[in-house]
Amino acid sequence: MANTNDSLTSVIELGNTEHESVVNQKRMAKRKLYDKLFYRLCQSTILLALVTLVILVVHIIISGVSWLSLDFFTNFTSRFAEQAGIKAAIMGSMWVLVLTAAFAIPLGVSAAIFLEEYAPKKKWVEWIQINIGNLAGMPSIVYGLVGLTVFVRYLNFERSLLAGSLTLALLVLPIIIISSQEAIKAVPLSLREAAYALGAKKWQVVFLQVLPAALPGILTGVILSISRAIGETAPLIVIGALSFVAFTPASIWDEFTVLPIQIYNWASKPQEEFHQLAAAAIIVLLVLLFAMNFLAIYLRQKYQRYKL
């Protein structure tokens, strides 16, 4: 008790001395100025980013919006701009989205559960963890080369949806693992303790309490990484996804194209009409990506009230 009193008085004294030293008004004014300058600097950085984004989006909308019609969605690509559409690309993107999710989510989430809950605190686990981090920062074209070597050539999947989706699944796997691990880590110890104190076994704590509590965070990470896969071009070009596809894939063994490749293809043509088609396809891709991001935000908000 006496201790607390002592420290209390010393705090008050400290406060006093500081108050006296503040007589230096000049220094104070300078500090305030820096404060303001820094604030303005941050503000202008954000503004710059926003303005750039708006200019880009507006530019794309202006050049592409007139091409958005029902035909644009129901036609295959064509040598004639007026008849060209994104049917094959959008169907291909949907296939890739579903397949990539189907491969990457179960694998990534289980890996995260293993690493967080079950892996021993050993050197080799630490080593794996570090390399997952490294993989997450790897340029996507490297994944394309891996996909080409392993899936296309070695496993003989050729230029199929399967090869493409597996490649993209590899690409997003590290991100899914890391974000799921973060979500699991964020579940407070008190929740686990509460469960254990009621005589729960480890798997019951992990699967009935920790995972449900981590689910919104896991979902957010999963959606954001899958949306990254949808926007990827380079690895798919490396594995040889086609750019001129006049059919919709019917199975995972079929060849395919996706929206970003279609965009890339049109944008590299000399004619202005095709550039506008590319802009129209970009609008569609952007809408898709924004929708996925909003879904992620929505899920996070929805479960916010359960935040511990």
């Binding site: 008190s190 303790e193 509460a194 104190a197 009621l198 449900p212 509590a213 511990l308």
Partner: peptide
């Protein structure tokens, strides 16, 4: 595990499960 179902524990900070009142009891 069995032991903890016979010797229960209440913690310093209330730590209900993020579930309904009913399910907190029945879990």
């Amino acid at each position: 595990v069995e032991l903890r179902s016979q010797i229960g524990m209440v913690f310093q900070k209330p730590n209900p499960f993020p579930k309904s009142i009913y399910k907190n009891i029945t879990w």
